[in-house]
């Protein structure tokens, strides 16, 4: 089978480019390479391997070519990661602030804190959350940048790069940035929602400091939550990697399938039992309960099961798509 050296080269250059300019620069590089080959051979193609490899050799290594388009000064987080860094930091800050705002509103409505004291405490918490998120994302992205940076050979003992060592094509499946960002937002929302808000979901009276009724069984949810956290954290890492690379490869497909399988197993556990719903809620319907609460007691478990079933169907479809794409990928 004829190897498409040009596409391999463009792919290798693209991996070192900032994601927002990647596609544009790749198209331009392709155009330049084909023009050079046409000029060199006097024909629009196809061209023999030796000619193509000689032209690629002249262009320089993928890293060098990428550096000309996006020079790398001294930095903690470079162009290929910077956009993702800003977006992920932004998403995390927004999600965390939304979670804290909801918690703050609940605290105020329950009368747990005096209004002014609560506002002061909430602002302090928000500032510390933002600082924490910026700090941690910078450390994590700085580490990714540091370890992903290719060592440049020292001058003098550098060996010329060989286009024949270019890695195989990944299969050319690009990932729209919006898709990865949506995945990141969902993972963060799930992590924040389940850990901060799940235990507070309930029905609150106007006067009572405690809820009249909490929907979830805290003990059972606490047992399952670490597993869900693992899945969501894995999802977050996976989507972040997709955002940075901008392309699917076999490893990412396998990761997605593993996450789907784990999610389906946990959804089955949830679907088969009512253990995450509080006993108090399940026992609703007694004469002392208001009619609306009694109705809610019947509706909520059914609605929850519907949600689990829907999530299972979606995850199964996603898994099927991942398996199909994996099979279709060039080996």
């Amino acid at each position: 089978m004829k190897v498409n050296w040009i596409e391999r080269y463009i792919q290798a250059v693209g991996e070192h480019l900032p994601s927002n300019d990647r596609q544009d620069i790749e198209s331009e590089l392709r155009s330049l390479l084909l023009d050079t080959l046409e000029d060199r051979t006097g024909s629009p193609g196809p061209h023999d391997d030796d000619t193509v490899l000689a032209v690629l050799q002249e262009f320089g290594s993928p890293q060098e070519t990428a550096d000309r388009y996006a020079p790398r000064p001294r930095y903690i987080i470079g162009p290929p990661l910077y956009e993702s860094y800003l977006q992920i930091t932004g998403i995390l800050i927004i999600m965390a602030l939304i979670g804290q705002t909801v918690a703050f509103v609940i605290q105020i409505s329950r009368g747990d804190l005096a209004a002014m004291a609560a506002v002061g405490a909430a602002m302090g918490r928000a500032l510390s959350t933002v600082a924490g998120i910026v700090g941690w994302t910078t450390i994590i992205f700085g580490a990714i940048q540091h370890f992903s940076r290719q060592e440049k050979p020292a001058e003098g003992d550098s060996k010329p790069w060989d286009p024949r060592e270019l890695p195989d094509l990944h299969g050319e499946e690009r990932i729209p940035r919006a898709e990865s960002l949506f995945g990141i937002a969902i993972s963060v929302a799930a992590l924040v929602g389940a850990n901060l808000l799940a235990f507070r979901l309930g029905i609150y009276g106007t006067a009572a400091p405690d809820p009249n009724l909490i929907f979830v069984n805290s003990e059972a949810v606490s047992r399952l939550l670490p597993w869900w956290n693992l899945i969501w954290a894995a999802g977050l890492v996976h989507e972040t990697a997709l955002l940075i690379k901008g392309r699917w490869n076999r490893v990412y497909r396998w990761q997605a399938i593993a996450i789907d399988v784990a999610s389906i197993i946990l959804l089955i556990v949830l679907f088969r039992s009512e253990l995450i719903i509080s006993e108090q809620f399940l026992a609703l319907g007694g004469p002392e309960q208001a009619k609306s609460l009694a109705d809610a007691g019947g509706i909520v478990p059914t609605a929850l099961r519907g949600v689990f079933l829907g999530a299972m169907a979606f995850t199964l479809w996603d898994m099927f798509e991942n398996v199909r794409s994996l099979i279709a990928m060039r080996p």
């Binding site: 620069i25 330049l32 262009f59 060098e64 388009y69």
Partner: peptide, 10 residues
């Protein structure tokens, strides 16, 4: 150098 021109144009 062809590899210099395109980044310059951009």
């Amino acid at each position: 150098d062809q590899n210099t021109l395109y980044p310059l144009l951009r």
